[in-house]
Design a protein around this nucleic acid. Structure first.
Length: 818
RNA sequence: GCCCGAGUGGCGGAAUAGGUAGACGCAAGGGACUUAAAAUCCCUCGGUCGUAAGGCUGUGCCGGUUCGAGUCCGGCCUCGGGCACCA
């Protein structure tokens, strides 16, 4: 053993050992329980960032821990390789996106290896490879035949100067990020997946995910947004029936206007004769597509001149076009009840529309109009001014008014979801081609299985505007599979969320070039532990759940859900904000690895915060982590020189020490179970502190045995976190023939935990006043008597009458005085 | 705007089922060793009053429940994540 801890050498040797012995290559093993541990794969942006290091260290710690508890662990890694940054880099540097991406992958793979992650590299996937995306194309044609993939128009951000579609990220304050031109909305034809067909199941199955954080489940539930209500049809003169969806039919009698989206057919019809409506629609064309922008902008609208007939009263109500009505939700039209909805209220005040209260709180006796002078009343209550419905509760009214509408054929009960169908077309080059052919004779024709994959040409030069695929005749021109006539390929590519929605399954059958998946998915799926950033709580995780159900319905997987347990790691922050390349506040992990080694990087990041919390970066605290590893090394050097004696009795003063050591082991083992790795490290530090003191004592057989036992706990507890140094020290201390990756997980000696007496706190009126030693065998009454005899306690009682005594055995006694 | 979180010493954090607030570490201050420095080791370390023993106070703010609240409930404030074309 070297005198000093040389991380670079230790880590090189350990990694060489794992590589030589193929330690992390796994196959299906019927004799051991399987554990599939998956970290969200990275986008190959160039270099690893701290978020990656945190994510992958967490996954590696869990994987290595499960392996030590006897499980057959699959931990794969791959690359979410398609995406926008590659195109941006290509334009900037004149390098083809493919070349840039593959170079990045090569660099980042080496970084991951240098960090010592226990991946089965034989299963590595890159989503930009045809052997991967061909199966996605294949599945898509299946979905098309099932009617689950369809074409429809949808708005995109359009830069009229660059003649190109912009991502939301490329729109800055309503302008193009490159040329500063105001961005417009443009409706174009795109491909969609019918995720709404699965809305109910995606919602219901959330209840079957006990291993998911409650907040993620809640966010998904709200995102899917199931609401029960009624579709009401208003007759509009010179137009026809206008359908609106509402969850508050009880407020129907308070409707004073209707509002439709600017793109609604009624608004389009009205603009033919009314220039002000036309002007309003033109203005709305400058609105961005992002919902956050839509929802925060000033609420404006225009009277379309159309008049609707109230279905129950027959009164005329105006129809407005308004910028806050979303065409994509419900019917693209709403009934407005300003007295009972905040947004409708603000709009009515602005455009001087009537505000008619129809609901008041149950015990309200004042003037209903007084209730809604300053703001809407959105609560429940009883109906007023509602004709035959006056006097009943709002809950009852929802039923009664809906019944009345249904009887008259003016309304229908409906369940609506906030969730919209998934638009998967991207007008970009660096993505998987959508396997469709546009034939002038036959229309849209899917590419037949035998012609898959539709390979994306990689030798491409990026220009500023539009997809370069349109300029590639060798890609664009093809023949129609149906009529054999000349036809063109679809040049849109898939949303990159498509690739990341099924990669977890492909790892099980990576080498199969005959099928998307095979029987091996039955062995490995579902993923037992998925780990990734909280920023993926909704989109990625919802799409992956959806895809799993699509795969199930194709007979390709048998589980209903892809991820049994989910760990959402917090952000890595610098200066209180997310560390990200777009913000330019990253700390390069490579510098850290070069200076201190992979183990120090891993240790610091596990110790600095619990997994789910955000982690504030601190360069100085890293040195402390490294210092601890040096102390561990020095301790091991003392112990390696000691004689090994297997059994014997414990010297009397060592018994209490051993109780402490097993107590800390017990704590650390529990903390592993609940993924509190920061406190696992804290317990290990405490153990090392104890062992260091013990090492300073005079030599004895009992001391040597306790030191070896203690250090064997520390090494095994730390092995998943700092695997290299533990690999080295485990071998140096000669703890057995197996490497520490397969060493048995430590077990607490329950006998060592037993104590005769325990210290308990005594409170008087809730304030800590004394501490007493109590025999463990004492019952509550004896403890109480003991406390009431204590001199220090009596001083605070001062002879006052005791009204009650609370005893929490092993913890405290609270004496309550009258 | 809507949905979801988080706020504890100078800093990161601990407190497992409502029971001793501040484990473990960082920074800082003091000391030992050293010709010196680095490294290492030892001590102190929420605020406040007190020579001390000890007292009071303290987990973003206001209120509530309880013998007892960092933890539960109601109302705020601030910060962070997501909002469907960043991944």
């Amino acid at each position: 053993m070297d005198e000093h801890y040389l991380a670079a050498e230790v880590e090189r040797d350990a990694q060489a050992f794992w590589e030589r012995t193929l330690s992390f290559q796994v196959t299906e093993d019927p004799h051991r329980p399987k554990f599939y541990c998956l970290s969200m794969f990275p986008y190959p942006s160039g270099r690893l960032h701290m978020g990656h290091v945190r994510n992958y260290t967490l996954g590696d710690v869990i994987s290595r821990w499960r392996r030590m508890t006897g499980m057959n662990v699959l931990q794969p890694m791959g690359w979410d390789a398609f995406g926008l940054p590659a195109e941006n880099a290509a334009i900037q540097n004149g390098v083809p996106p493919a070349r840039w991406t593959y170079d990045n992958i090569d660099y980042m793979r080496e970084q991951l290896k240098r960090l010592g992650f226990a991946y089965d590299w034989s299963r590595e996937i890159a989503t930009c490879r045809p052997e991967y995306y061909r199966w996605e194309q294949w599945l898509f044609t299946r979905l098309y035949h099932k009617g689950l993939a369809y074409r429809a128009t949808a708005p995109v951000n359009w830069c009229p100067h660059d003649q190109t579609v912009l991502a939301n990220e490329q729109v800055v304050d309503g302008r193009c990020w490159r040329c500063d031109t105001p961005v417009e909305r443009r409706e174009i034809s795109q491909w969609f997946l019918r995720i709404t067909d699965y809305a109910e199941e995606l919602l219901v199955d959330l209840a079957r995910l006990p291993g998911w954080p409650e907040r993620v489940v809640t966010m998904q539930r709200n995102w899917i947004g199931r609401s029960e209500g009624v579709e009401i049809r208003f007759a509009v003169a010179h137009y026809g029936a206008l359908s609106v969806f509402t969850t508050r039919p009880d407020t129907l009698m308070g409707v004073t206007y209707l509002a439709v989206a600017a793109e609604h057919p009624l608004a389009v019809a009205a603009s033919a004769t009314r220039p002000d409506v036309m002007r309003f629609r033109d203005e709305c064309r400058l609105n961005q597509t992002a919902e956050a922008v839509m929802e925060t902008m000033e609420k404006r609208g225009v009277d379309t001149g159309m008049r609707a007939t109230h279905p129950l009263t027959g009164a005329d109500v105006p129809v407005y076009a308004a910028n806050f009505v979303l065409m994509s939700y419900g019917e693209g039209a709403v009934m407005a009840v300003p007295a009972h909805d905040e947004r409708d209220f603000a709009f009515a005040v602005r455009y001087e529309l009537p505000i008619v209260p129809v609901i008041v709180p149950m015990d309200y006796s004042g003037d209903p109009c007084a209730l809604v002078i300053a703001q809407a009343y959105t609560g429940e209550g009883r109906l007023v001014g509602s004709g035959p419905f006056t006097g009943i509760s709002s809950a009852q009214a929802r039923t009664d008014i809906t019944d009345a509408l249904e009887r008259e054929g003016l309304g229908t009960r409906r369940v609506h979801f906030r969730l919209r169908d998934w638009g998967i077309s991207r007008q970009r080059y660096w993505g998987a081609p959508i396997p469709m052919i546009h034939c002038p004779q036959c229309g849209v024709v899917p590419v037949p299985d035998e012609d898959l994959p539709v390979v994306l040409p990689e030798d491409i030069v990026m220009t500023q505007s539009g997809s370069p695929l349109k300029a590639r005749p060798d890609f664009l021109n093809t023949t129609c599979p149906k009529c054999a006539g000349p036809a063109e390929r679809e040049t849109d590519t898939f949303d990159t969320f498509m690739e990341s929605s099924w990669y977890y399954a492909r790892y099980c059958a990576k080498d199969n070039d005959q099928a998307m998946l095979d029987e091996r998915v039955r062995h490995w799926l579902p993923v037992d532990q998925y780990i990734g950033g909280i920023e993926h709580a909704i989109l990625h995780l919802l799409y992956a759940r959806f895809f799993n159900k699509l795969l199930r319905d194709e007979g390709l997987v048998v589980t209903d859900e892809p991820f049994a347990r989910l760990l959402t790691q917090g952000m890595v922050l610098k200066d209180g904000t997310k560390m990200s390349k777009s913000k330019g506040n990253t700390v390069d992990p490579q510098a850290l690895i070069n200076q201190y080694g992979a183990d120090t990087a891993r240790l610091f990041i596990m110790f600095a915060a619990p997994p789910e919390q955000s982690l504030e970066w601190n360069d100085e605290a890293v040195a402390g982590a490294h210092r601890f590893l040096k102390r561990l090394w020095a301790l091991a050097r003392v112990i390696v020189a000691l004689p090994v004696s297997e059994a014997g009795s414990w010297a009397e003063p060592h018994k209490a020490l051993r109780t402490q050591i097993h107590g800390l082991l017990d704590q650390a083992l529990r903390d592993y179970e609940r993924y509190h790795f920061n406190t696992v490290v804290a317990s290990c530090m405490s153990l090392v502190n104890i062992l260091q003191k013990l090492a300073d004592e005079p030599a004895s057989a009992s001391r040597a045995r306790l030191l070896r036992e203690g250090v064997s706990f520390v090494l095994r507890l730390l092995a998943p976190i700092v695997p290299h140094i533990c690999h080295k020290l485990w071998a140096a201390l000669d703890f057995g023939d197996t490497a520490i990756i397969d060493a048995p997980w430590p077990v607490v000696d329950q006998a060592a935990l037993c104590q005769d007496t325990v210290r308990m706190v005594v409170q008087v009126n809730g304030k800590r006043r004394a501490e007493i030693a109590v025999a463990v065998a004492c019952d509550a009454a004896e403890i109480e008597a003991h406390a009431l005899r204590d001199e220090a306690v009596l001083k605070y009682i001062e002879g006052k009458p005791v009204s009650k005594v609370f005893v929490v055995p092993g913890r405290l006694i609270n004496i309550v005085l009258r």
